[in-house]
Computed example of a mutant assay.
Amino acid sequence: MSLKISLNFGGGAELLVDKIKKHNIELPALIKYLPDCQKEKWTIRELLLWIKDNLLKERPELFMQGESVRPGILVLVNDADWELCGELEYELQANDNIMFISTLHGG
């Protein structure tokens, strides 16, 4: 069974995903991003890899650093700071709203 969630990008982060602020996505039931195993629960760790492969149109280094988001990108899970939810290990639930807000501004 697939997992439906919505992704929101703001504060300039939307420029990296074709200037589209809201994406309603459906993730496949089986995760293939982990080479040594396949599992059925999506975490933000796998979601970030999916975003990198499917939504980022340019300069992925401005969004990701290693397996996580770059410093300066605020991540909210259902309007709560992802640090309160377990960050990369948070298991996505149906109808979750994940928001990425860039706090970095040129000058």
Score class of each variant (00 low, 15 high):
residue 5 I to N: 01
residue 6 S to D: 03
residue 70 R to H: 06
residue 91 E to D: 14
residue 47 L to W: 02
residue 55 L to D: 06
residue 90 Y to R: 04
residue 74 L to W: 04
residue 83 E to N: 10
residue 29 A to K: 03
residue 58 E to R: 12
residue 45 R to P: 02
residue 64 M to L: 10
residue 99 M to I: 11
residue 71 P to H: 06
residue 37 C to D: 13
residue 13 A to Y: 09
residue 28 P to E: 13
residue 9 F to D: 00
residue 26 E to A: 01
residue 105 H to V: 15
residue 16 L to R: 07
residue 104 L to I: 15
residue 65 Q to I: 13
residue 83 E to C: 00
residue 4 K to N: 02
residue 40 E to K: 00
residue 61 E to H: 12
residue 96 D to C: 08
residue 1 M to N: 12
residue 19 K to N: 11
residue 23 H to A: 09
residue 52 K to D: 06
residue 30 L to R: 02
residue 42 W to D: 01
residue 20 I to R: 10
residue 60 P to K: 10
residue 32 K to L: 10
residue 84 L to P: 09
residue 51 I to G: 00
residue 40 E to Q: 02
residue 101 I to K: 08
residue 72 G to D: 15
residue 4 K to S: 10
residue 65 Q to S: 01
residue 66 G to E: 09
residue 66 G to D: 12
residue 24 N to K: 03
residue 105 H to D: 14
residue 47 L to A: 03
residue 16 L to Y: 15
residue 16 L to G: 05
residue 80 A to G: 11
residue 17 V to K: 05
residue 74 L to D: 02
residue 72 G to H: 03
residue 38 Q to H: 06
residue 62 L to Q: 14
residue 105 H to E: 15
residue 39 K to L: 11
residue 84 L to K: 01
residue 14 E to K: 14
residue 3 L to W: 11
residue 43 T to D: 10
residue 49 L to R: 10
residue 81 D to R: 04
residue 96 D to H: 06
residue 47 L to K: 01
residue 6 S to P: 00
residue 14 E to F: 08
residue 69 V to N: 14
residue 24 N to Y: 12
residue 19 K to P: 07
residue 55 L to H: 12
residue 101 I to T: 10
residue 56 L to N: 13
residue 19 K to L: 14
residue 102 S to E: 05
residue 97 N to V: 14
residue 26 E to K: 08
residue 28 P to N: 08
residue 64 M to K: 10
residue 10 G to Q: 05
residue 30 L to D: 10
residue 74 L to K: 09
residue 106 G to E: 13
residue 77 V to A: 04
residue 52 K to N: 15
residue 42 W to S: 00
residue 14 E to W: 09
residue 88 L to K: 05
residue 1 M to D: 08
residue 61 E to F: 10
residue 67 E to P: 09
residue 81 D to I: 01
residue 74 L to N: 05
residue 16 L to P: 09
residue 3 L to I: 14
residue 70 R to N: 11
residue 26 E to M: 02
residue 41 K to E: 09
residue 35 P to H: 13
residue 52 K to H: 15
residue 96 D to S: 05
residue 68 S to A: 08
residue 53 D to H: 09
residue 90 Y to W: 05
residue 65 Q to T: 04
residue 22 K to Y: 02
residue 106 G to W: 13
residue 105 H to L: 09
residue 105 H to R: 14
residue 73 I to H: 11
residue 26 E to R: 07
residue 76 L to C: 06
residue 12 G to F: 13
residue 87 E to Y: 07
residue 91 E to I: 14
residue 33 Y to T: 00
residue 69 V to A: 07
residue 101 I to V: 13
residue 54 N to C: 01
residue 77 V to Q: 03
residue 18 D to F: 14
residue 60 P to I: 09
residue 33 Y to S: 07
residue 96 D to F: 04
residue 12 G to S: 14
residue 2 S to A: 08
residue 52 K to V: 03
residue 37 C to F: 06
residue 91 E to K: 13
residue 28 P to D: 04
residue 38 Q to M: 07
residue 8 N to L: 06
residue 73 I to D: 14
residue 65 Q to M: 02
residue 37 C to I: 12
residue 70 R to D: 11
residue 3 L to E: 09
residue 80 A to R: 14
residue 64 M to D: 03
residue 104 L to F: 12
residue 57 K to N: 11
residue 48 L to E: 10
residue 27 L to R: 01
residue 59 R to E: 05
residue 105 H to G: 13
residue 14 E to M: 15
residue 51 I to W: 01
residue 41 K to Y: 07
residue 90 Y to Q: 08
residue 12 G to T: 09
